[in-house]
């Protein structure tokens, strides 16, 4: 079993996470009971372990941002339901850690990024994630609104990158 002394605890990382999202302050209430891991779907098929991730954040261990572990979370919120402490929002912590991971230049290795690019394109061009949705299409004005809201969002960069890519391919074919 790991042993930790007072000098192993570095609160800087934890403070950064709390500055980012105030709700993260509640992870200090974690008693390391492991209930979150017991019925976690990701834990069944990988080394994903929420208890260890929380411990790493509290110890200031930023390697958690590089690890692939945080990308295994299913965001099913079962852990939040089972956690005996009030206020620990594990899915939100995971989303925040993933954000930090992106900012540091890490991020997941998408097995099929094309599908996500397609979904992003459709959302910004028609307001839905599928082609030819059932029923009436969204009015152009509403689509314009979505584009304005997402102007500086990652989804827009994904969309622009895919458009640039498509133009490159078109130009090559000519």
């Amino acid at each position: 079993m790991d042993q930790y002394s007072d000098s192993d605890w570095n609160w800087d990382f934890f403070k950064e996470m709390v500055e980012d999202i105030e709700d993260n302050k509640n992870i200090i209430e974690c008693i390391s009971c492991g209930k979150c891991v017991g019925d976690c779907p990701a834990a069944k098929i990988s080394n994903f372990n929420v208890r260890k991730i929380i411990a790493k954040v509290l110890r200031g261990n930023k390697s958690v941002l590089k690890d692939s572990d945080i990308w295994y979370c299913y965001l099913c919120e079962k852990c939040r339901r089972l956690c005996p402490r009030d206020g620990i929002n594990i899915p939100l912590l995971i989303i925040d850690l993933r954000n930090e991971s992106f900012k540091k230049g890490f991020g997941p290795k998408y097995n099929d990024l094309n599908k996500y690019v397609e979904m992003s394109e459709r959302f910004l061009t028609s307001g839905v994630v599928v082609e030819e949705p059932l029923g009436e299409p969204l009015p152009l004005e509403r689509i314009k609104e979505l584009n304005i809201i997402c102007d500086f969002a990652r989804i827009n960069y994904v969309f622009k990158a895919s458009k640039a890519n498509k133009n490159k391919i078109k130009n090559k074919k000519r």
Partner: peptide, 12 residues
């Protein structure tokens, strides 16, 4: 799993 199928399809 919130698109796990795109990142870790075998596990998902």
């Amino acid at each position: 799993g919130a698109s796990q199928i795109l990142i870790n399809p075998r596990e998902a």
